[in-house]
Computed example of a mutant assay.
Amino acid sequence: MATTAMEYAETPAKEKLEFRIFGATSFAATKDAWTLDATNGEGFAPDVEQLMTWVAGHIALVDNEIAYGIFSPDSEVAVGICELAITKPSVRGKWVKMIRLRLRPTVEGLLFKNDPDGLLIAVSAYVSAVLGVYHVKNEHKAVIIKVYGRTQEQMRFLTLLSAALKKGGNATFESKIEGRWLVLNWGKT
């Protein structure tokens, strides 16, 4: 599959989100929109600026790190930004790590207000990111996916996801929680 592979995650509201790398147009549109959000009080401007600097330097794979975006269909503005690390082969195999998923400041604002639409967008973005990382794993011939649970809410989600994967009886990979990481392993353990 090409590096620009898309994966769709369907929300309960039937909206699909796309996991894809940034192009010049989508990065510029995302940077402008997120900066405007921060200027309007929906986020912390220095954090947005720092994130956009990182993304600008990681539109392509640099030092084993790359930025991917989560987009609504036909939109060039990302609702989420994924920070991925692709490791070099090791004894346990090559890994793809989803270090962080950052949500657009307006979506974060909806979450803080306990708005159901914000929750739907956030869950859909997270599911789209995890599914997208699976395709990145295949593109880079990795055998392990690691997804970091930064917050307690993310850890609860990852724990539930791991349990659901185990209950599904998928014999092609092992799912487990290691510290704050959900680990999906297609290699021998």
Rank of each mutant, 00 (worst) to 15 (best):
S124F: 02
L161H: 11
T159C: 02
D63L: 04
G43W: 01
C82T: 08
K137E: 09
A122S: 11
A122H: 01
V127I: 11
V107W: 02
A164I: 04
N170I: 13
A38C: 01
R20H: 15
T25E: 13
F112V: 00
E15R: 14
G57T: 03
G118A: 01
A38L: 00
K167C: 06
F157D: 13
K31D: 05
G132T: 13
P46Q: 12
A163W: 03
E10Y: 04
Q152C: 02
K97P: 03
I70K: 02
I66M: 13
T39Y: 05
G149A: 07
R150S: 03
L36N: 08
M1L: 14
L119N: 04
E10M: 07
P12E: 03
G187H: 09
L165Q: 12
P12I: 06
Y134T: 15
A60N: 15
L111E: 00
T87R: 14
F22S: 05
T25F: 15
W54P: 00
L158I: 07
M1R: 15
A164Y: 04
K31V: 06
S26T: 15
V96I: 09
R102I: 07
T87E: 12
K113N: 03
D117K: 05
L51H: 02
E49W: 00
N170D: 14
L184S: 07
F157R: 05
R20Q: 15
N138G: 13
Y126A: 08
Q50P: 00
A5C: 15
D63Y: 04
D32E: 14
G93F: 05
W95A: 12
G23W: 09
G169D: 11
G23D: 14
A164C: 05
L184R: 11
K176A: 07
A9E: 13
F112A: 09
G132S: 08
Q152R: 07
A78Q: 01
K14Q: 13
V130Q: 13
S72Q: 13
G168I: 04
A67H: 09
R180A: 01
M52K: 00
S90K: 12
T39W: 01
E7L: 06
A13L: 12
L17E: 05
A38S: 02
L119V: 08
F22A: 03
F157Y: 11
T39K: 11
W181K: 10
M1V: 15
F71H: 01
K14D: 12
L110C: 00
P116V: 08
I145R: 09
G57K: 13
A67L: 04
R102W: 10
K16F: 01
A125R: 03
G169A: 03
I144P: 04
L165D: 04
G179F: 02
L131A: 07
H135W: 12
T172V: 07
S162D: 11
Y134S: 15
A142S: 12
F27G: 02
A45K: 10
G168P: 04
Y148E: 05
I121C: 00
E174K: 12
A29K: 10
S175I: 08
I81C: 08
L61C: 05
T172A: 10
A78S: 04
T53D: 15
K97I: 13
T106Q: 02
R180M: 04
Q50E: 14
L158N: 06
N185E: 01
S128L: 03
E65T: 13
P116S: 10
K188S: 13
A78C: 01
R102M: 08
